[in-house]
Design a protein around this nucleic acid. Structure first.
Lengths: 141, 141
DNA sequence: TCCTTTGATTGCAAAATGCAATCACTTGCT
DNA sequence: AGCAAGTGATTGCATTTTGCAATCAAAGGA
């Protein structure tokens, strides 16, 4: 009985059951845009995630197949988190959330700049960033 | 002091602070794809939202400017919820969540069909559905 | 040896969720 | 007029999740 029971088979619902909370996509954001790969890097963001929630979400994301966890060869206590293709493919969702917020919410202009540049670049800009993420995170499989 | 204090001015975060939970986007989904406009229609969905949470989210969505609430002229107790432009503009986010789930989650094929058709129609299909939602929800302002 | 860094875990208060029952009011039917 | 059904919620209460600070064991660096 290791089967998770979902509330429904609706695609919208299934996505929300995985990342429908206030923290999960911020972790993905930090990995994608700030290059964070180590546990202790995440609480440094403005939203200041606490370590218990961070630990919970990282474990969930690994078990969901969105991240992988590997040991750092140089430091035995250090873990390196990487995006999988499933994780990298969250970028279009994040880009749309960014676009929506830049239209309707009081965003910080400095933080909005990266999203504006991406929009200006068209669909090709997202594809390019996804290709770069594949290089960084799936480099040697 | 009616100002909500956000965790940060990051566009991703600001979106999550509004709809980053397991229910809000399902309500929007039901309005967009099932044409639901009345309180008692929502709990009929597979996920079976309970009335206290539904009430809380509808109030929040109205105060966030994503929905409007109007009385039904024929029934004094009946309320009609409508999407605003800000709400209609959530469709591209929902479409991306749908696309991601159809790639990576065990979606119900019947429920996935509408998303597949939308993808097959390209960006024009989303624009067309948004135009139709404007007609239905913003018809007479 | 001791101090720092690492990825967490623990304890506890506060908030959110989930579920069932109930509410005040209106409508439709007879 | 009377009464059942339908309306958008609210209430009470148990469970779960969140938020915050302190702490942990293992490893590395000096």
């Amino acid at each position: 009985m290791t089967q998770t029971s979902f509330r429904s088979g609706c695609p919208i619902n299934l996505g929300l059951e995985v990342f429908g909370d206030k923290w999960t996509l911020l972790i993905i954001r930090d990995m994608m845009f700030a290059g964070k790969r180590h546990f202790r890097e995440f609480p440094a963001s403005d939203e200041a995630i606490s370590s218990n929630i961070l630990s919970d979400r990282l474990t969930m994301l690994v078990s969901a197949g969105i991240l992988t966890r590997a040991g750092d060869p140089s430091h035995k206590l250090k873990a390196i988190y990487s995006l999988t293709e499933k994780g990298i493919d969250l970028l279009p969702i994040i880009a749309q959330i960014s676009r929506w917020s830049r239209s309707y919410m009081p965003v910080d202009p400095v933080l909005a700049a990266t999203g504006e540049a991406r929009d200006k670049g068209g669909p090709g800009a997202i594809d390019a960033q996804m290709a770069e993420l594949r290089r960084l995170h799936l480099g040697e499989g």
